[in-house]
Amino acid sequence: MNIDEDRRDATGTGGGSEGHAAHDAELIARFVGGDATGRDEARARDLVASCPECAVLAADLVAIARATADLPEVPRHRDFRITPQQAAELHRAGFPSRLRRVLSGGSDRPFVPWQRLAGATAAIGIVMALVTSPVGLAALSPGHATLSAPGAAPALTSQGGTVGGAPEHVSGAGASPAAAAAARAAASAAPATVSVGSSGPTPSGVPAASPAGPLAQAPVAGSATSGPVAAATEGPGASMGAAGAGSTGTAPDTSGTSAGPSAGAVGPASAGAPEGGQFGSSIARARGPGSPFGPWEAWLVVAAAGGVGFLALHLAARRAA
């Protein structure tokens, strides 16, 4: 619709010269508002000067605008100031409402059911992402908690079995003294690894540290690397490796020949699993042997699910708003 049609719609008149009824009232209104320029302004001036009714119209419009601007103040009978109590309540309600506004794309409108579903998906994803994060796994792991510094080589040493972060790992019977020494050196040279845990009566000294799952498979120098020993790593306090005194890379004895009950086992994280550290072990335990996902991939998938859910919720809310 062009502007001439607009004018006709607004005024019921078109341009013309058959008296005031045919004059463009909106042109007069635009002129009064200071919005008529060029030819329009000239036409409006001409109309106001030549048509008394147009002149009255212009004067009336100015008078109405002035009267509107001069409308008296409205008597206020409420105090709109916010009291400290109200402020405290608003602050208490602040975080959820802010989160809600973020989720709802700035809208205050209530969520529709399918938005609730998207919200639930997002919440599940976020919780799963948190639970499967390294911190969450450390907190949930029974009997131990080990946090490795980022980039720390998985070097943990235990009595009776040592697996260093170095490429050469020595464990179990049959490990030569030289290999044990190398492991000791490797373990002590490994970057900081904090181990908190206890070693249960884990069979040790058995040849190899082989946690469940291929990801935790440690390269072992010496004798057997897998087999029934795997069970030894599953006990409480065993999997994270720190045995006995909970030492970190300072095992007093790495001969691996003492098949005593006190010997620590080599946990998955300490078993040189290159990805995910101890966190990988929990994932590895949780998943089946044929799972295509490694621990980090699994975590990323869960995090992505949460992110997609959150995004879906946000977009849905914006659309609804």
Partner: peptide
């Protein structure tokens, strides 16, 4: 502009008050 014109039409009977 249209609102002002509408106001003027609505106030037609009482425009004398504003003049």
């Amino acid at each position: 502009h249209r609102g002002r014109l509408a106001l003027r039409a609505l106030l037609e009977d009482s425009m004398e008050l504003f003049r």
